[in-house]
């Protein structure tokens, strides 16, 4: 499949909310095509249709939690890394 690196760098950087400087764009676009080629190596492998993808290591007994209340963080702990707050609220950007 042919992918235009410039085009998709534009698209995925919007999806991932990362603004790129012109300099970064140039660097990334240059290497992206090579890396995608490198990824494409796996497309040499044929006959994978019936192979189950392995998302994560199979586990035996599941780890579940009983419905029992534990401790919460104190308000100071919650807010200690927050830069903008109003009372106990964390200030966030506009959603509109």
């Amino acid at each position: 499949m042919n992918i235009d690196p410039a085009e998709w760098v534009e698209r995925v950087s919007k999806l991932a909310l990362i603004n790129l400087s012109e300099e970064e764009k140039k660097l990334l676009i240059k290497d992206m095509a090579r890396i995608i080629d490198f990824f494409n190596m796996i497309n040499e492998l044929k006959g994978l249709d019936d192979v189950e993808p392995l998302f994560m290591m199979p586990r035996g007994e599941p780890v579940l939690r009983d419905d029992e209340v534990g401790e919460c963080l104190s308000i100071n702990e919650v807010l200690m890394n927050v830069k903008e707050k109003e009372d106990r609220f964390i200030k966030g950007p506009r959603t509109a």
């Binding site: 534990g70 963080l73 919650v78 609220f89």
Partner: peptide, 20 residues
Amino acid sequence: SCPSDYRGKPPNTNVCPTCL
């Protein structure tokens, strides 16, 4: 394991590292 009964609590007092 934070309580599910969050209503009426002061803001951000019903959280832990996971749900934050």
